[in-house]
Design a protein around this nucleic acid. Sequence first.
DNA 1: CTTAGGG
DNA 2: CCCTAAG
Length: 611
Amino acid sequence: MMIKSSGINGFDVPSIPRAPRSARRTTNKKKLEDHQVCAFDLLAAVAGKLLQEKENSSASSNETEAKDPFVIDRDAVKLEQQSTDRVSDTTCFSKKDSVVLDEHLSALSTSDGSDNVETDLRMGISVTTDVQPKMFNKMKTTHHCGGSSDDATGFEIIAPVQDEGPKTGELLHNNSLPSLENKFPSSPDLHHKRSVKFVSREDDQKHISRCSKSSKVKASPPHTGNIRVRKFSGYKYWKVSPKLRYHDSCADEGARHASCSGETYHERDRGLDSSLVKKRKLCDRSSVVTSETGVCSESFSKSHNECALMYKNSIPHLHGDEERSSMKNHPASDYSTDSQVRLSIKSFKVPELLVEVPVTATLGSLKTTVLEAISSVLRGGLHVEVIVRGKMIRDDSNTLMQSGISHNCNLDSLGFTLEPRSPQAPSPRSQNDHSVLPASNERKPSKSAFTDSVSDEPSPSPSLNKQVKSDHNPAPITCDALPEKSQESKALALSPVTIADSLAIVPMDRKRKRSELAQRRTRRPFSVVEVEALVQAVEELGTGRWRNVKLRSFENAEHRTYVDLKDKWKTLVHTAQLSPQQRRGQPVPQELLNRVLAAHSYWSQHHFGQV
DNA sequence: CTTAGGG
DNA sequence: CCCTAAG
């Protein structure tokens, strides 16, 4: 295969020479993680700290051992959720845990015995902690989440595929919450640490650095009116108290602005590093908030034993005949088997709440406030939406099957969201709030959700815009002084309660770390035809203009991005260099591989553009 | 948004 | 496939 009249060595010389890019990625990102704090550790630490305080409530000394079951009134949350030992098992935080944590946090903040006495304490309550597993592990050690270690299922939804869809689903609450014996043991890590400082202790550094890139520990004094404990990831806000301000409900960005309006975090925000961005990015992809929820389906369980175990409790027989028998109830089903989709939602997560209370408020009143906030949100009723592969299916008349929800579909991509039925028209926040926050690293989804229907392809193309977590990173606490609670329990000013895009439920594959982030696209091996097209394109365009390659040969292959093509080429080159025995997957014709090598060699040598 | 590379 | 620094 040699010289072609129209090219060099069989390759067309690109009309547009490509200059090799200078070496990239020369920096060692990991180094950057040092000195950065894992917000969650911070929270944990604070929680522990707070706990102590609570115990010593009046004494105000922090030496006592934390024993109180510092539990949040879960009653406020009608949505009971099992809160077993997920904290340790997976990365899930039962909402009460989080809330508890945040309460502590807030208390701690308020306890800043300096001059902020009259400032409001605003804090975010979030339960979206699953993003950082390591932290959870740590949390586990810092506070024991009561509850048994059984894998109880919180809810079970059984909906006939044939019917009206999700709305006909039957919700069974088959498990009660374990007693809330949560305690915040006196963890050495937490005790003796006051304020933010402890976070930066060396011991913690390790955790911190591992935990990820977070904002730097900066014990900058609050000195301003409000103490922002953390950012909000909420997309929607509910006004809980008329007299309070509430946030604009516009999306994420607005929310972020609103919540971070305080000067306190300016620097921090600016310093957000990639990690934060990363998480945020997920949020940006979709308005859907995911939660630590386990959803099992037959199809799901078939490929994941752990899952099967998971809902053994509620469903005696998962596989085989049992499913068939249920068929009779749905004669109309086209499927001779598996006409039922069984979902086991392990838990619900309460996204985030924004509570604003004066620092003079008591811890008790704070709790009350939180309780009210949560109750308020739930009181109005919740609206459930179903998300399939990142897309919210609003047409209630669709059947599950039509919506692509069946045992055949990977329920991994199925999610739910809970939203307040009628959010109190939140009014926009003051402009100040919005403008203060420096534009942060926003990442817009570059691709809109795929529209592929389930029927088309064998393997549904997962949307990039998958359910996401509302987990915005907890902001570092920046209070440095110490507590001293004010005696006066002033009427709490409960401000807007925010819940990130509402409560959300999303399937989670517990054993998959990745699930914490966005869902990974389903793998779709390149077919020989695709490889051929790719090779062809690269032969003509070279190995540096993947976008062109994409446009040229994969214009209609929505699921193949130019990055994918680039990656594929990379693997092709690698594959071609392996002996046939070492190759795996669907074999690629040697002829193609030869072309790959030739093209690779050619384009790697001729840097047209080097000029 | 694209590329290029490491993970 | 994912993530992301650079450009």
